[in-house]
Amino acid sequence: MVSRKVANFDLSTYMAQRKAWVEEALDRSLQIGQPETIYESMRYSLLAGGKRLRPILCLATCELAAGTVEMAMPTACALEMIHTMSLVHDDLPAMDNDDYRRGQLTNHKVYGDDIAILAGDGLLAYAFEYIATQTQSVPAERLVRVIAQVARAVGAAGLVGGQVVDLESEGKLDISVDTLNFIHRHKTGALLEACVLSGATLAGASEADLRRLSVYAQNIGLAFQIVDDILDVTATQEALGKTAGKDVTAKKATYPGLWGLEASKQEAIALVEAAKEQLEPFDERAHPLAAIADFITTRSY
């Protein structure tokens, strides 16, 4: 997969630096309390690594809109807590029944189904507490708007709704592209969009800028899922850090299954180019977002 890359911008250095900031902030955000088991379970999955793409998107859009990393970091951490919750619950036997995530045993394999469910619940609740209590130097009306954006993204209008349709579609042979798009615009795309919009909202971005960033986010969200589907077919478990080929095993509808690998790759590239077009008014301020969009179609994990 090839896409026009952003000139003179070192994404690897940018991502590594911000990932280190996020990892440090996440470690500080959640300390062991009582009962120890639930906090250990929450930290086990929250600190298991990963790209930290979602919090980095939040930080990047806050900086693009003339905000600071400091004002966005609590929300960035909360978004990773919510993403982690979704992975913990997604891996459960009642959902995808997966044994590995981010290169280690899934939460329920270590702590049991009951504690894994409660760990996900705990992370979800704590995420909103963390935004509300730890965000500094942001007007209350912006903070309330961010909490609403994130809540909508994770609820029935977003991630939960997408997961429901995904479960209902398993094993069916007549899933349309429209249904598949619905699943992934909600299950994957809604939280990615919240990551992008929340950072910009915290910094006081204009409505016009938020609309552009929303379109950018929707396009990279769908591209991200298409590439995920491709990697499920082409990558190894070692590269992915999770079970490869599970979509085929579960008889899930996927983009390669509907279009084939090559057409899926081309669609992902087209979505990324459309996303980057939305960034043109921001000039060099948008270089991180444009480079992240390119990364989506070139990643191998």
Rank of each mutant, 00 (worst) to 15 (best):
Ala72Ser: 12
Val196Pro: 02
Gln34Gly: 02
Gln134Cys: 09
Arg145Asp: 13
Val248Ala: 15
Arg102Pro: 02
Glu23Asn: 15
Ala7Cys: 06
Asn181Ile: 02
Asp10His: 11
Ala194Arg: 05
Tyr111Leu: 02
Thr179Phe: 03
Met81Gln: 03
Ser176Asp: 10
Met73Asp: 12
Leu159Asn: 02
Pro35Val: 01
Asp98Arg: 15
Gln136Val: 09
Met85Val: 01
Thr68Trp: 03
Asp209Met: 04
Pro35Lys: 05
Asp99Cys: 12
Asn107Gln: 04
Thr297Trp: 03
Lys276Ala: 06
Ala119Tyr: 11
Met95Ile: 14
Tyr216Met: 02
Ala116Val: 02
Leu79His: 03
Ala140Leu: 13
Leu192Ser: 07
Gln17Ala: 14
Ile230Tyr: 09
Gln31His: 07
Arg299Ser: 13
Leu30Asp: 04
Ile269Asn: 05
Ala156Ile: 09
Ala7Gln: 15
Leu192Tyr: 08
Gln163Leu: 05
Asp27Gly: 12
Ala25Ile: 09
Asp232Gln: 13
Ala286Glu: 00
Asp91His: 10
Ser137Glu: 10
Gly158Tyr: 00
Thr37Asp: 07
Ile292Thr: 04
Lys265Glu: 08
Lys276Pro: 03
Leu261Asp: 00
Gln134Phe: 10
Thr135Arg: 02
Gly155Ser: 12
Met85Cys: 14
Gln134His: 15
Leu258Gly: 10
Arg152His: 11
Leu87Gly: 07
Ala7Gly: 11
Asp98Thr: 14
Ala25Leu: 05
Arg152Trp: 04
Ala151Glu: 10
Ile175Ala: 06
Gly161Phe: 03
Asp98Tyr: 08
Val150Met: 06
His184Met: 07
Tyr255Glu: 01
Val6Asn: 09
Lys246Pro: 00
Gly241Ala: 12
Asp96Glu: 13
Val146Cys: 11
Ala140Thr: 10
Ala274Gly: 11
Ile147Cys: 05
Ala72Arg: 03
Ile117Tyr: 03
Val154Thr: 10
Glu23Gly: 00
Leu30Cys: 01
Ala116Thr: 09
Lys252Pro: 10
Ala76Phe: 07
Leu191Asp: 06
Glu24Tyr: 00
Pro256Lys: 12
Arg145Lys: 14
Phe295Trp: 10
Val215Asn: 10
Gly122Arg: 04
Tyr111Gln: 05
Ala290Tyr: 11
Met81Gly: 09
Lys251Asn: 15
Gly103Asn: 15
Leu173Thr: 08
Val177Leu: 15
Asp228Pro: 12
Tyr111Thr: 03
Phe282Asn: 08
Gly120Phe: 06
Ala217Ser: 04
Glu168Lys: 06
Leu30Glu: 01
Leu240Met: 13
Gly33Lys: 11
Cys62Tyr: 06
Glu168Trp: 04
Pro93His: 14
Ile220Lys: 06
Asn97Leu: 12
Gln17Ile: 08
Leu53Ser: 07
Val233Asn: 05
Leu64Gln: 01
Ala290Met: 14
Leu222Ile: 04
Ser300Trp: 00
Ser264Thr: 13
Lys187Ser: 10
Ser45Asp: 07
Ile220Ala: 06
Gln278Ser: 05
Arg145Trp: 02
Ala291Tyr: 07
Asp99Phe: 07
Leu222Glu: 00
Arg185Tyr: 08
Ala200Asp: 07
Asp121Ala: 08
